[in-house]
Every structure is written in C-alpha cells, then in structure tokens.
Computed example of a mutant assay.
Amino acid sequence: MAGETEVVEVLRAAGCVFAEDEARLLAEAAAETGADLGDLVGRRVSGTPLEYLLGWAEFRGLRVAVAPGVFVPRQRSAFLVETAAGLARDRDRHSVVVDLCCGSGALGLALATTMAAERTPMTLAAADIDPVAVDCARRNLTPLGAPVYQGDLFEPLPEELRGCIDILLANTPYVPSGMIARMPPEARDHEPRTALDGGPDGLDVFRRVAEGARSWLSPGGHLLIESSEAQAPVAVEVLAEHGLAGRIAESEEHYATVVIGTRPAR
C-alpha cells in the first residue's frame, strides 16, 4: 500500500467516519510493530475493531491494552469512573475498590490513575470470568500492583475482601438478548457475547451481582453499574430487594446512565 493518503481513501470508501485518524493510527501501528499496513487496512475494512488492530484503546486519556476477544471500553463508561471518583473523594479516607466483570481492567485503571493524581489512597483488585480478559487486565493492572482474579463474579475474590469493599465497579453486560442482532457489526461479530448479552431484559448478570453485593460491601460502601435509561428504575428496585439503597445518575455529555447501590452504614 502506497501510503497514508491511499489508506484514507480505502477507509473512507469502506465507510469509516474518522478515516484520516484511523489511517494515521494504523500507519503508526505498522511502523511500531512491523505489521504489514495493507493487512491491517484489509482487516479494518472487513470490520475488525480498530482497537484490536492497534492493541490498545484510548480511555480517559490512557492507552488501555486490549486484545481480540476482549470487550473494548466505551467512552460513555468514563461517567461511571467519574461517579466512582466522586464517591471515593467523599469518603475522605483510603478506599478498597474492586473492578468486577473487569474486561481489560479499563475502569479500575482509570479510577486508580485519577485517584493517584489527586493523592487519594486506594487499593484495587479486579476479576473476570474470561481468561483472555484476565490476561489483558493483568497487563494493564499489574504495574499498579493490583491483582486480577479469574472466576465467576465474587467467587474468585479473597475472603478477606468480604465486607471491606468501599467501591464496587461492575460494568455488567446490559444489552437485551433480542437487541444483540441490532448492534454494530464491530461489536456483535468480534466482541465476546458474554460481555454484551444481559439476558431477556439486559439485567440478568446485574441481578446476580446485586444479590451478592451487600455481604462484600463495607458499611456505607457503593456498588456502581452502567445501564440504559429505561433499565435504571428496574435496577433500583432490584437493589432495594437486596438491602441496598439505589439512586440514578445521568450524564448528557457522555450519554450514560449509572445506577448506584449503597449498603447502609449501620
């Protein structure tokens, strides 16, 4: 392939909205890794997510390592991180944070980076059921000294964390099963179904998290999940069923909805 100009033309013809930016990033990736630029462009045109070809995704100003088969962090999830950061600041003490269903570990990484910049102490751990995601999360979180456990939801967490988690991030899948077919092909055909499909109403995995969360949260601790605007009231009801006080936070800037469940302080 001749160069970036030709790449731009090929990407634009394939419908890439940000063809110039993608061409630059693919050219840089080819130069850095020795990969064939034509091959990268061909795979991009065929629908492979750009982040898989680059080996990283940008999230809150960070380069988060990702790999094929791992959920690509969405920009709207920055609101979940911002909300968690606000709760950590309000505690005004050391916080224990767990990133459950962590995928690449992007949420935990971003929150830890934010808190470190503000000199707010926190301890981070993460977990995911998918071994590919766990390997990816370890690449991102091991430099922070954060352990990443493999297993189903709370099952792999060390028992000493029970009753001690101040902030529990759980970006559970919340796309209703019937809507998966309508998702963009990049997500539908390349990302793991387990990271997307939330069951008939999109809240199946969340319900399991809510059921177990109270015993793992510290008194006054918070569970945070992302949902659609329509799902949020149902999620608050589910939290109440399991002894957590729920509330909804929304961001027009990020087009995001976060549901927060808080364990009573006493």
Results as ranks from 00 to 15, higher is better:
V7H: 08
V8Q: 07
V8D: 01
V10H: 01
L11F: 03
R12Y: 07
A14Q: 02
C16T: 09
E22I: 03
A27D: 01
A27I: 00
A27K: 13
E28D: 14
A29W: 00
A29L: 03
A30E: 07
A31H: 09
G34H: 07
G34L: 07
D39Y: 02
R44E: 01
G47K: 03
G47L: 09
T48M: 13
E51Y: 02
L54P: 09
G55I: 05
R60S: 11
L62K: 02
R63P: 03
F71P: 03
V72Y: 00
R76H: 13
S77K: 04
V81K: 13
T83Q: 13
T83R: 13
A84S: 03
R93Q: 12
S95V: 13
V97T: 01
L100C: 12
L111S: 12
T113D: 06
T114F: 04
A117P: 05
R119T: 14
A137P: 02
T142Y: 14
P143F: 13
P143R: 12
G145D: 12
P147K: 06
V148C: 11
Q150N: 10
G151V: 11
L153E: 06
E155S: 15
P156Q: 08
E159I: 13
E159F: 02
I165K: 00
I167S: 02
T172L: 13
V175F: 00
V175I: 05
P176I: 05
G178S: 04
I180L: 15
A181K: 09
R182D: 15
P185K: 08
P185L: 01
A187H: 01
A187V: 14
D189V: 05
H190V: 01
E191R: 01
E191Y: 04
T194A: 14
L196W: 03
D197G: 10
P200Q: 06
R207F: 11
R208D: 02
V209C: 11
A213L: 05
R214C: 02
S215W: 04
S218K: 08
E226H: 06
A232S: 14
A235I: 09
A235Y: 08
V236T: 11
H242G: 06
G243T: 01
A245V: 15
G246M: 01
R247F: 00
E253A: 15
A256M: 01
T257C: 15
T257V: 15
V258H: 04
V258M: 05
V259L: 03
P264N: 15
P264H: 13
A265T: 15
R266N: 14
